[in-house]
Design a protein around this nucleic acid. Structure first.
Lengths: 116, 116
DNA sequence: CGGAATCCCACAGGATACTG
DNA sequence: CAGTATCCTGTGGGATTCCG
């Protein structure tokens, strides 16, 4: 895992022109992949959702992928999972505080998309 | 390619709680993958770079990937490629205006990374 | 120096079936 | 309903070699 940091090489020049904003590879680990950004976007801007709601809304995703991506996001503290011990089962997913702080970034992305 | 739009399903509810900011899949096409964000970050915040400079700085990337990712970014209008017809060859890459408008998004990402 | 051409593989992502 | 359990495929990405 640490074999290929895939980050930026050390800057020899002490007076870097501009400091580079952070390790993208680490960020990509958290929000990369085909579905995570979509998932986060939905949970951040639309609030809590049930598993089946997400599956219906995120057209094209399979249960397998939905589960695995939600689990990954949960592990990274971006999504909260609430299980209601009922029958039939009911599970709700929501964006954590950490994830909700991504809202400005999403808006910047959106603005960029419109402008470009 | 169009078989799986992988976007968001149509919202039946006319009064959506918040409009969702844009098609993430399309954006992911542009800036997704392992290297594109790093590449853009460097070119946006550090300006024009030669091929060999990028290769040295973006530790871990191979020539093959560097070439292919730069080509993809060029196709999408995010990177400009300038060839100097000299010997030995010299090629310079720089962020286009379109790419430079991503700067706020990068800063948001950075801010988020620091906070989180 | 800055590539292009090949070959290769791991793994992200998908299809299907079954279950508490 | 909300998952696991398998199995499978495509391709993103890498290693190596050659070239103007």
């Amino acid at each position: 895992m640490n074999k290929h940091p895939a980050g930026l090489a050390d800057q020899k020049d002490p007076s870097a022109q501009h400091e580079l904003p952070c390790p993208m590879p680490d960020i990509a680990k958290l929000i990369g992949g085909k579905w995570k950004l979509i998932l986060l976007q939905v949970l951040i801007f639309q609030g809590t959702k049930r598993f089946s709601e997400l599956r219906r809304q995120i057209e094209g995703i399979t249960q397998t992928m939905l589960t695995s991506q939600l689990r990954a996001l949960e592990r990274d503290g971006l999504v909260a999972r609430k299980v209601y011990p009922e029958v039939p089962p009911k599970v709700e997913y929501s964006a954590t505080q950490r994830a909700r702080q991504l809202e400005p970034m999403f808006k910047e992305m959106h603005a960029w998309w419109l402008k470009s």
